[in-house]
Simulated scan of single mutants.
Amino acid sequence: MECQIRRATSLDAEAISEVTINALRKSSAQDYPPEVIARLEHNFSTQAIHRLMMQRQVFVAVVDEQVVATASLDGAVVRSVFVEPGYQGKGIGKQLMVVIHAAAIDASLELLHVPSSITAETFYVSMGYQKVRDEFFGDERTIVMCKRLLE
Rank of each mutant, 00 (worst) to 15 (best):
residue 53 M to E: 00
residue 22 N to K: 13
residue 143 I to K: 10
residue 73 L to K: 13
residue 49 I to V: 12
residue 19 V to S: 00
residue 51 R to H: 00
residue 9 T to F: 01
residue 134 D to N: 15
residue 104 A to P: 06
residue 7 R to H: 07
residue 51 R to V: 00
residue 79 R to G: 03
residue 32 Y to Q: 08
residue 5 I to K: 07
residue 47 Q to W: 03
residue 133 R to L: 11
residue 99 V to Q: 14
residue 114 V to K: 06
residue 92 I to G: 05
residue 20 T to L: 02
residue 74 D to R: 14
residue 15 A to W: 05
residue 113 H to G: 03
residue 110 E to V: 05
residue 125 V to K: 15
residue 56 R to T: 00
residue 82 F to H: 11
residue 132 V to Y: 14
residue 91 G to L: 06
residue 89 G to H: 14
residue 72 S to E: 03
residue 41 E to A: 05
residue 73 L to F: 07
residue 100 I to C: 08
residue 96 L to T: 10
residue 37 I to T: 10
residue 75 G to K: 14
residue 50 H to K: 05
residue 51 R to C: 00
residue 147 K to C: 10
residue 35 E to G: 03
residue 86 G to L: 10
residue 67 V to A: 04
residue 96 L to M: 14
residue 103 A to P: 04
residue 93 G to N: 08
residue 60 V to W: 04
residue 106 D to E: 14
residue 71 A to P: 03
residue 60 V to C: 06
residue 26 K to S: 03
residue 74 D to G: 05
residue 103 A to L: 15
residue 82 F to T: 02
residue 143 I to R: 08
residue 79 R to I: 00
residue 28 S to D: 13
residue 48 A to C: 02
residue 106 D to M: 08
residue 3 C to G: 05
residue 24 L to I: 09
residue 29 A to G: 04
residue 21 I to D: 01
residue 116 S to T: 06
residue 33 P to K: 10
residue 113 H to T: 14
residue 128 G to N: 08
residue 7 R to A: 07
residue 66 Q to I: 02
residue 62 V to W: 09
residue 137 F to V: 13
residue 94 K to T: 13
residue 49 I to Y: 00
residue 79 R to Y: 00
residue 138 G to R: 12
residue 133 R to T: 10
residue 76 A to L: 02
residue 65 E to I: 07
residue 83 V to Q: 02
residue 15 A to G: 03
residue 8 A to T: 01
residue 19 V to L: 02
residue 49 I to D: 00
residue 88 Q to W: 13
residue 143 I to D: 03
residue 139 D to S: 12
residue 118 I to D: 08
residue 95 Q to N: 10
residue 99 V to M: 09
residue 123 F to S: 07
residue 39 R to S: 12
residue 97 M to A: 12
residue 11 L to V: 08
residue 98 V to R: 15
residue 39 R to I: 01
residue 55 Q to Y: 01
residue 145 M to V: 07
residue 143 I to F: 11
residue 116 S to C: 09
residue 98 V to N: 13
residue 122 T to K: 13
residue 101 H to C: 11
residue 94 K to C: 06
residue 107 A to H: 11
residue 144 V to H: 06
residue 148 R to Y: 13
residue 105 I to T: 13
residue 6 R to F: 01
residue 67 V to D: 09
residue 134 D to H: 14
residue 114 V to N: 01
residue 48 A to I: 00
residue 5 I to F: 08
residue 19 V to E: 04
residue 88 Q to R: 06
residue 133 R to A: 11
residue 68 V to W: 10
residue 113 H to R: 15
residue 39 R to E: 07
residue 24 L to F: 02
residue 2 E to F: 10
residue 29 A to Q: 12
residue 106 D to C: 09
residue 95 Q to V: 09
residue 46 T to Q: 09
residue 96 L to I: 13
residue 70 T to E: 04
residue 83 V to H: 02
residue 36 V to M: 03
residue 32 Y to A: 00
residue 150 L to F: 03
residue 76 A to R: 15
residue 95 Q to H: 13
residue 27 S to Q: 12
residue 100 I to V: 15
residue 9 T to M: 06
residue 57 Q to S: 04
residue 51 R to E: 02
residue 135 E to D: 14
residue 11 L to E: 11
residue 64 D to F: 02
residue 43 N to K: 11
residue 72 S to L: 05
residue 102 A to I: 11
residue 151 E to H: 12
residue 80 S to F: 01
residue 13 A to P: 02
